[in-house]
Amino acid sequence: MSVSRIRLTLELKGKGRCECEFARHLAPLTVGSILRALPIEGRAHRYDGLFIYMETGLAVGREKQRDEFKRGDIGFMVANGAVCIFLKDIKGMMFNPLGRVVSNMDVLESTSAGDVLLLASA
């Protein structure tokens, strides 16, 4: 594991888990805040079939924001302090970039209301 790329697991409780990789250079303050808060557990929410998200309770400002993400990318929504996993390519909404899902993305496709997500160190 390198200092700049951090392996994490994202578990959809009772349904499976996937591996993620955060890249510190994308948004160092945001990534650092999330890593210090691990493990983070919360209810999964869906947004228009575009992404799923989990609120973290973290207050982080805008950092190196982008408005274009691909399926499997992970971003941070500043407005509600949520980690978002993109299920489809998306353009036009601003997020702090965090990294991407590197394995088992299919597990997240089956997310439904009330499911619990757990983000933890690999």
Rank of each mutant, 00 (worst) to 15 (best):
S2R: 10
S4P: 05
R7Q: 11
T9D: 14
T9K: 15
T9V: 14
L10N: 06
E11T: 14
K15D: 09
G16H: 00
C18Q: 04
F22S: 10
A23C: 09
R24E: 14
H25E: 15
H25M: 04
L26Y: 11
A27K: 03
A27F: 04
P28K: 05
P28R: 04
G32W: 00
A37L: 08
A37G: 03
P39F: 02
I40K: 13
D48C: 01
D48P: 00
I52Q: 04
Y53D: 11
L58F: 14
L58G: 14
A59R: 15
V60F: 08
R62M: 00
K64M: 08
E68M: 07
F69R: 03
K70A: 15
N80T: 11
C84W: 01
C84R: 04
C84Y: 04
I85N: 07
I85D: 10
L87G: 05
L87P: 05
L87N: 06
K88W: 00
M93L: 12
N96T: 01
P97R: 03
V101D: 08
V102H: 10
N104Y: 07
M105F: 14
S110Y: 01
T111Q: 01
A113C: 00
A113E: 15
V116Y: 02
A120K: 14
S121F: 05
S121Y: 07
A122S: 14
